[in-house]
Each structure stands twice: as structure tokens, then as C-alpha cells.
Amino acid sequence: MVAKERIWELMEEVFDPEVPVLTVVDLGVVRDVNFENDSWKITITPTYSGCPAMKRIEDDILEKLKENGIENASVELVLSPAWTTDWLSESGKKKLKEYGIAPPVAEVDKSVLFAERPIVPCPKCNSKRTKMISQFGSTACKAHYQCEECLEPFDYFKCLK
């Protein structure tokens, strides 16, 4: 039988379809790997309820296992506990920044309307003089920012807690 560690290693070769520098392990989407009733069960959780990448991630996981000779596997989607940006690995955050997406910084108190926005440093020039253009960005998990120093528009992987 293949070792559980090997399955985890393979999971680190499956990339997020929308942020292709991150693996599904970096993202914290893969919650568990278990061998039950002669079959591997991979448990995953969505980042956002409507994340359209989940089906693709499921298919990619099964495909990766198949390529490596593991046919008896299934993927289960669970909602609880709900995903938070705290589950992004440190190396994942670093990879995001290198890719040009600012990693999540701090929780915004969403009960305070017009609250101060968190300071999100520009992933290109590190300036803290940035402004939020829109709370909602190119995918459900991102907000849209612009750097006032180098003028670069960039995505911010918004904090979800």
C-alpha cells in the first residue's frame, strides 16, 4: 500500500486553477487524507461557497492520483469547519506575493461601516501607500487595490475569518 505521506506529497503537486502558484495544500483546501474501506478518501473544503474551482480541484486531485497508479480514491467536500485565510501556509503567502497578489493582512471589522481599510503593502514595490479600488475583485477571494507609489493595480487575497 502507498503511504499516507506519499498522498500528501502528490497533493502538493495539485495547483489551484485560479491562483496557479499555490498548491491545494498551500491554500488549506485539502483538510484530510484517509484510507478507509480499501480506498483513499481526500477531504476538501471550499474557500467561498460559490467557488467555481472546486469541481476542477476535485477532478485534478483524482487525475493526479490516477497518474500515479492510485485508482481507488474519492474526494469528499465538507463545509465545517469553515475555511479561513489563517489556513494559508506561510510558504503560500510568500508565493502569492511573488506572483503579484498581496497576501491577507488583518481582519477588517465588517460591523463598522466605512471603517479604516487595512494597510495592504504593494506586492511590487512594498509601499504602504495603497488604496482599495473595490472590495470585490477578479475572483471571490480577492479585492482590488492600487499602489499610489508605483501605480501598479494589484489583487489582494482578502482576509476571511
Binding site: 471550499p46 467561498y48 461557497s49 460559490g50 467557488c51 467555481p52 463545509l79 479600488i133 473595490s134 472590495q135 470585490f136 475583485g137 477578479s138 471571490a140 482590488h144
Partner: peptide, 19 residues
């Protein structure tokens, strides 16, 4: 920006509906 915001919110709502 609002076009994107409203469709993002629509996506969340339809996602919640799915569950």
C-alpha cells in the same frame, strides 16, 4: 468595480444556494 462586486455577490449567493 460595481459590476464585478454585484456578480461576486451573486456568485456567493448561488454558492450558498447550492449547499
Amino acid at each position: 468595480e460595481e459590476d464585478i462586486a454585484m456578480t461576486n455577490i451573486a456568485l456567493d449567493l448561488v454558492g450558498q444556494t447550492t449547499s
